[in-house]
Simulated assay, not measured.
Amino acid sequence: MKKQWYLPTPAFSKYVCYPEFLGHYSHFPQHTERRSEGFLGNYNLHLIFDGEGYVFHEGERIPMSRGRGFLYPKSAYQYYGSDPGKPWDVRWVHFSTEIVLPLLEEVDQSRAYLFTFDLEAKLDELFEEMYLLSASYVTRNEPRLSALLYELLVKLLQNSEPLHGSVPHEVRQSIPSAADIIHVECARPWSLESMARLTGYSSYHFLRLFRMVMGKTPNRYLTDCRLTRAKLLLVSTGLSIAQVATQSGFAQSSYFIKVFRKFEGVSPVKYRQAFGS
């Protein structure tokens, strides 16, 4: 099977990201590409759901099979292909962006990003919706196509690991679970060590993985959770500023006021005046 769609240049020119050429190949043993540097001026993402194949990267032939993928930056040299005897079931998209996205920052500094991804993350469902919208393209589909691609890239960031040095899926899943606990119990006196104990990682590896999966450090995430709770208390209760600070996890009201002003641009009192009932 070989299905592919070219999309016209979008009518609106400022989408965060937008698919230009996408498709789904299976039982297609002729699938192989070798592109010279500078030939393809957009990003090229492939996710492999079955079958076997390869990517040539830095002089090495690297096997690429179920649960693996690759993402090339713009204008990169590309050499990859499906095994004729066990061809890929692969979903792919060439796309452009208007801004630098988190996943692409690292890719732009490399020749290619090779990774493993979680097959249960339902990335194929995002592709399927993009296929349907592409097959019946009308201009009003453009915002949804852009949104689906953005969701795909964010989910891939959260559910993938570099091919070399990757960790098992069940281990990676402990990071979002720990984040949920921290969010609900943000008033606790958390330290990096106590947050890391939720996952069984050392503090060093927890910090690295949390930043990779959640897009921010554990301490920044904790601060954001505390500020979210504080804003809710400010607008929905008559608690004093000191009480709001305590119930949001800030040990001192003076520190709470300083942090609140830094991230929200106003003092807690002015925030309450502006948004409180």
Rank of each mutant, 00 (worst) to 15 (best):
46 H>D: 07
240 S>F: 09
257 I>N: 08
214 M>S: 00
200 G>E: 05
126 L>R: 13
127 F>K: 02
73 P>S: 13
110 S>G: 02
92 W>V: 05
191 S>V: 01
87 P>C: 03
269 V>F: 03
213 V>Q: 01
209 L>N: 06
224 D>Q: 14
102 P>V: 06
185 E>V: 04
111 R>E: 11
108 D>T: 07
73 P>E: 06
247 Q>H: 11
114 L>R: 12
22 L>F: 10
157 L>K: 11
9 T>D: 10
77 Y>E: 12
64 M>E: 10
92 W>D: 01
106 E>Y: 06
21 F>E: 09
205 H>N: 10
277 S>L: 11
37 E>K: 15
107 V>E: 04
25 Y>F: 15
19 P>S: 10
127 F>V: 07
270 K>C: 00
99 I>A: 11
72 Y>C: 01
238 G>V: 10
96 S>G: 13
261 R>M: 06
148 L>T: 04
271 Y>P: 00
202 S>Y: 07
151 E>P: 04
209 L>I: 08
155 K>P: 00
82 S>R: 06
2 K>Y: 08
183 H>C: 12
233 L>W: 06
43 Y>W: 04
69 G>K: 09
174 S>H: 11
110 S>A: 13
194 S>H: 05
178 A>T: 06
255 Y>H: 15
14 K>I: 01
113 Y>H: 13
13 S>Q: 15
242 A>E: 15
129 E>P: 01
245 A>E: 02
71 L>G: 09
139 T>W: 08
31 H>E: 08
189 P>R: 02
37 E>R: 14
255 Y>E: 08
21 F>S: 01
273 Q>A: 04
242 A>D: 11
